[in-house]
Each structure stands twice: as structure tokens, then as C-alpha cells.
């Protein structure tokens, strides 16, 4: 029991450190890049005196460390401040957009897992045969296409040719949950396809390796059928070794969704992020970066827990 408490505690420390570093670098980056927030807000016609006054109001004339300290203190109290360009609290803005980005990432992850595992299991049975070669080649092609190009191709196929999807239509989950899921399906597929290729490639190799392992030979000598050996031994073991890859895929998915939102015109975090950068809206940008950091750390944490749940060796390494 003590071990679990310790693990959680060390994870929280890890998280706080990550959040501190990420937010500090965001702040620092913002003061380095050209462009002045006050100037952007007031437009090119404003006088130098007006701009200077706004700078004082916003606290931009104070040193970086002091500004960061103030922001950090407020953030710890749960107050991320008001967005300069929207005028509303940053937390409200972000939470209204989270549903799109998180929903899309989640659906994409499900698609990746549901497709790559069976596909890898199927191909690892007879590596090198015609089905295996076809699927592997298809995977390579998908892997090479960037998500935005894939998005445009899929929009063209599903909206223009088959008319079964309307790009840019989005229903909030509160209004109609079914419609919400449907509206995110195609964008999620765009994020998922290249990741399927990557996960499949890794899983296939790991399954082929496990199918030659000693414990599979033992299972064969116990008289188990190939199907049972696949389900009972090969798939669980490959799942453990693929956890690292899948958690990498997850952060990729999150990043991918920021781009795909642009193409599909969805009101997600990605578009908010771009707006914050182009309008030099530093409270909003810091808030979004912090949220993304939190989500990523939580995802890695979940992946660690999942690995420990299925692999006893990892549990013991922790306990030792």
C-alpha cells in the first residue's frame, strides 16, 4: 500500500515540475518573440502614449520574473486570468473547447487500438504472405501522408463524392451526444490513420517475436489452439511492450487534433491556441499550454498504471 501512495506522490511531484517548466518557457518565449501585445490590441493607428498606457495597465512593463510570479500565484488559486482578446476568463474559454479536442483524441485512440491490434494479430500469423505485404504497404503509405492532406482527401471523398458527411458542422455534446460523436468521426479518422500505421507496424513485429517465444512453445506443448495462444499469451504480452509506443501515439494524437481542427473548422483548443498566438494573448496562451501539459502528464500516468496492472514485473520493480 505504501508503495502505491509513494508512486502517486512522486507522479504528482513530477507533474508539478513539468507544469512549472512548461509555463515558464511559454512565458519566456512570449517575451522573446517579436510583436507587442498592447500594439496588437490597439491597432496601428494608436499613439505611442496610448500603447504605453495599456502596457502599464496590463503590467507588461514589469520584469518577466515578476509577471511570471504573479501569474503563477493566481494559477495556484485556480485563476488563469482574463483573455485579453476575448475579455472572458481563460478557464471558461478553454473548458468550452475541451470537448472537441479531447473527444476527437479519444475517438482516434479507440480507432487506433481497434484496428491495429486485430490487423497486427492477423498479419503476424503468416508474415510475408500476400495479405501481410498488402497491409504493410498500405500502412507505409498512410504513415507518409501528413494529417492535413489526409483530412482534405477524406473531406473530398466523404462530403463531395458520397455526401455522407458535412465538414464544419459541429454539435456540442450537451445538445445531442450522438450527433456530437458523428460530427467528430471523420476528423478522428484523419488523426488515427497515420497512427494506425505506426502502431500496427510495431505490434506486428512484437507479435511475430512473441509467437517464437519459449512460453508460446510451452503453450503449444500444452495442446492449446493457435487462437487461444494468440488471445491468452501473444496479445497481452505485445500490449505491454506496446504501451510506450501507444503513449507516444497519444501525445501525437493530441498534437494532430490541433491541426485537423483547422481543416474541419471545429471549435477546439487548436484554433483557440492559434488565435492566442496571433493576437499575442499571453494569459490565454499560458492557460492552454498549461492545460495541454496537464492532459499529457495525466495520459502518461494512466499508461504507467495500465502497464503495472497487466505486468507483474513492473509492479515488483516499483516495490523493490
Amino acid at each position: 500500500m505504501g508503495n502505491e501512495v509513494r508512486t502517486v506522490f512522486s507522479k504528482i511531484c513530477e507533474f508539478v515540475l513539468t507544469a512549472l517548466l512548461v509555463s515558464f518557457f511559454t512565458f519566456a518565449a512570449f517575451s522573446i518573440i517579436p510583436g507587442d501585445t498592447a500594439r496588437v490590441m490597439l491597432g496601428p493607428d494608436a499613439s505611442e502614449a496610448q500603447v504605453q498606457q495599456l502596457r502599464t495597465e496590463l503590467g507588461l512593463d514589469r520584469p518577466l520574473a515578476e509577471r511570471y510570479g504573479t501569474w503563477l500565484r493566481d494559477a495556484f488559486r485556480g485563476d488563469l486570468g482574463n483573455s485579453l482578446s476575448f475579455g472572458t476568463p481563460v478557464s471558461e474559454l478553454i473548458s468550452s473547447r475541451l470537448a472537441v479536442t479531447l473527444g476527437m483524441s479519444f475517438i482516434a485512440l479507440i480507432i487506433v487500438i481497434l484496428v491495429s491490434f486485430p490487423m497486427a494479430a492477423f498479419c503476424s500469423r503468416n508474415p510475408g504472405n500476400i495479405t501481410d505485404k498488402t497491409l504493410s504497404t498500405a500502412g507505409h503509405i498512410l504513415f507518409a501522408i501528413p494529417p492535413f492532406a489526409l483530412s482534405m482527401m477524406l473531406i473530398l471523398i466523404f462530403s463531395k463524392v458520397f455526401h455522407i458527411f458535412t465538414a464544419g458542422r459541429y454539435t456540442a455534446p450537451g445538445d445531442n451526444f450522438g450527433a456530437y460523436v458523428v460530427s467528430l468521426l471523420l476528423p478522428s479518422l484523419c488523426i488515427a490513420l497515420p497512427k494506425i500505421a505506426m502502431t500496427f507496424k510495431f505490434l506486428r513485429a512484437s507479435m511475430i517475436e512473441y509467437s517464437h517465444s519459449d512460453f508460446v512453445r510451452t503453450a503449444k506443448s500444452h495442446g492449446l489452439t493457435d487462437l487461444r495462444i494468440m488471445l491468452r499469451h501473444i496479445i497481452p504480452n505485445s500490449a505491454v511492450s506496446s504501451i510506450t509506443v501507444i503513449s507516444l501515439v497519444l501525445s501525437d494524437i493530441l498534437g494532430g487534433s490541433l491541426i485537423v481542427e483547422q481543416v474541419f473548422n471545429l471549435p477546439g483548443l487548436g484554433r483557440l491556441l492559434l488565435a492566442a498566438i496571433s493576437r499575442r494573448d499571453f494569459p490565454l496562451l499560458s492557460g492552454i499550454v498549461l492545460y495541454l501539459a496537464i492532459i499529457t502528464v495525466i495520459l502518461y500516468f494512466l499508461a504507467d498504471i495500465f502497464a503495472a496492472v497487466i505486468d507483474p514485473r513492473i509492479r515488483d520493480r516499483r516495490a523493490a
Binding site: D214, F215, A219, S221, I310
Partner: peptide, 18 residues
């Protein structure tokens, strides 16, 4: 499974670690 049993040389990885 029924009539012929086999044991092999290296027991280190002959059991499913999970």
C-alpha cells in the same frame, strides 16, 4: 495436450511472464 508432454532446456522464459 493429451498424450505427449514436452519440457525444454531453458526454463527462464518458458512461462508466460504476465
Amino acid at each position: 495436450g493429451e498424450k505427449i508432454g514436452v519440457i525444454f532446456q531453458d526454463p527462464s522464459s518458458a512461462l508466460d511472464p504476465l
